[in-house]
Simulated scan of single mutants.
Amino acid sequence: MDQKIIVTVDVVLLTLVGERLEVLLSRREREPFAEQWALPGGYVHAVEDADSLAAARRVLREKASLTSPYLEQLYTFSGATRDPRGWSASIAYYALVSADTLRPAGPAPFELWPVDELPRLCFDHARIVDGALERLRSKSAYSSLPCYLLPPTFTLTELQQTYEHVLGQKLDKSAFRRKLADFDFLEVVKDAQRTGSHRPAQLYRIREEKNLMLFDRTI
């Protein structure tokens, strides 16, 4: 008799804390790999989940008590050796949220880890994290994707710094501002400015109808 295939979803939830990308991890509650660090994940529920995206959204609600404004399928990781329970397939997703979102009222069921200082992860979750980082960085070079790491409103300086932290390189301010003007995916938040030690800075947000903007050339 053929062995039943294990089908799960795993989510790489990324956020920007200061200047560093961090990923959400939690300790597994049961075997295999009980008490070891893992990505939020779980079985696909054939009756409850309409598709794998619905399963990924449910996992985030159950494991991290949140809904991500951006959730994209990454890749399907599969094989006979990735899970000691048997032949398995994990439909992996990556999600982006503002760090402000990850502030639970009580004890958090998860921890954030810098992507370059990860603990040992169970299954092949380290490989999944690497795949998500590669996708984020490559896609950020030609899209508005880094905006999802920011709060709903932000300054142009904060937006440029976010791109720089994701891409790992400094960007020319004038060229970056011209790029923003060319693709027109931001709108001014009327009567809203960021105040501080410097002169007030205008606040912006993503145009609702734009969602994810793809550029015809890289940043």
Rank of each mutant, 00 (worst) to 15 (best):
I128A: 04
R120M: 10
V17E: 10
Q73K: 15
L167H: 06
K179I: 01
A99W: 04
L112C: 01
V47Y: 10
R61S: 09
Q36V: 06
L39E: 02
L203F: 09
E19A: 13
S26R: 13
Q160S: 08
P119G: 03
R58Y: 01
P84L: 08
S88R: 11
S65A: 15
I128G: 00
A56T: 06
W37K: 04
R127N: 12
S140T: 12
W87V: 12
G86L: 08
A38E: 13
T8W: 01
Y148K: 06
L13S: 08
E187Y: 09
A126V: 11
A141M: 06
G131M: 09
I219N: 01
L74A: 02
E29F: 04
L96D: 06
D83A: 07
E134I: 10
T76H: 03
L180T: 03
T195K: 12
Q161K: 14
P152S: 04
R103L: 14
L150S: 00
E29P: 00
G86A: 05
P151L: 01
A141G: 08
E31L: 06
F183E: 06
L118S: 05
R61G: 11
E164I: 12
Y43F: 15
P109M: 03
A126T: 14
T162F: 10
D100R: 12
R177D: 09
T218H: 05
V97N: 00
K139Q: 13
V59F: 02
E117M: 10
H45G: 09
F185Y: 14
A89V: 05
Q193T: 12
E72D: 11
L186F: 08
L150W: 04
S88G: 04
A192H: 14
A192T: 14
R82S: 12
G79E: 05
L180E: 00
R205S: 10
V44T: 03
D83W: 05
R177E: 14
F77E: 10
S174I: 07
K170F: 10
L16N: 01
Y148A: 10
A141P: 07
S88P: 05
Q160F: 11
G79Y: 09
T67M: 07
L24D: 00
A132N: 06
V12N: 00
